Computed example of a mutant assay.
Amino acid sequence: MQNNKPIIFVSHAAVDSGIAGVFKSDVEQNFLGLCSLFVSSDLDSIQGGFEWIQRIKENLSNAVISIGLYSPVALTRPWIYTEFGAGWIRDIPTITLCHSGLQKNQLPVPLSHFQALDLTDELHLKHLYEQITEAINCQLPNIDFSAEVNKYREITETQRVQRMIHGWFTQLKNWNPDLDSLFDDKEVIEILIPAQADADFLNFKQDVEQSEFLIVEQAGMAMGTRVGAQASVWNLRRGVKFDVLKSLLNI
């Protein structure tokens, strides 16, 4: 069935399909069905894809506005740059909308050459809606932008923490093969972190302690270790929400 509504093309990585689906539903509902959002997927998820690629091409060709819903993971997907460039070449509003920890100053060229917005910033979301309003020629919806932003912040922060947890525990286990004992019978274990990874590990420490998953205490330095010539030594203790951490890691 042909869709005669103005099309808003939403580019995103497949791993961000959850937030993309919520965003699509919200925009279509808030604009009372006056527009239709085409939520794309990155090429990694396309299975033999000619029909799906054709749909992407058709919707990009007909869109009145293109929105890149980008997380840090999305920046590693080459297909999103093709979709961004297609919108730019067509000279339609082509907007980068950051989420899940991605900051505007982290955008690479060519995305960094264009003004970007933050999905979890109330003024930015309102500005996006104003651009949509102009593109589809209607009035600005009377909605609570603060409530919308709070919802997106909760979803994207949960997503960011889950990715961070999975990524760090995979790496920590590579450095510390006995890490699993923390989930068995030990309430505290000692781990080694290569000196060059200390700065990033401090960000991990802050996140897991704020979430009350773990208590992370520095226990000194070590030389000539299995993880490098120099390493920092840390004690990991179970936090009050340790069971939530186990659930996130499917343990």
Rank of each mutant, 00 (worst) to 15 (best):
G167W: 06
I67D: 03
L236S: 05
F38R: 01
D207E: 14
G48T: 09
H12S: 15
T158D: 11
V15I: 14
F38C: 08
K246I: 02
S71I: 09
A222Q: 12
H124P: 00
Q210G: 01
A63H: 04
G167I: 09
L107P: 02
A14N: 11
P110N: 09
I65H: 04
N30R: 06
E122L: 08
V240I: 15
V233S: 08
F183I: 02
N142I: 12
N203K: 12
V227H: 04
P72D: 07
L123I: 09
G228W: 08
V244Y: 11
M223N: 14
G49Y: 08
I95S: 02
G87A: 09
N105Y: 11
I92R: 06
I132S: 07
G48C: 00
E134F: 11
P177K: 14
Y70D: 02
L75G: 09
E134P: 05
G68V: 09
Q196S: 13
W79Q: 00
L60W: 00
G87D: 07
E51C: 04
I53K: 13
F183R: 02
S17W: 10
F213E: 01
R237D: 00
P177Y: 09
D198Q: 12
L245T: 05
S11H: 06
L102F: 06
K173H: 13
A219H: 07
I155D: 02
Q139A: 12
P177N: 10
Q206W: 09
K57L: 12
G101M: 08
Q54N: 15
S45M: 12
G21P: 00
K205L: 06
C138E: 11
N150Y: 09
D42S: 15
I95W: 03
W234E: 01
F9W: 05
D184Y: 03
P177R: 15
R55G: 10
H12G: 04
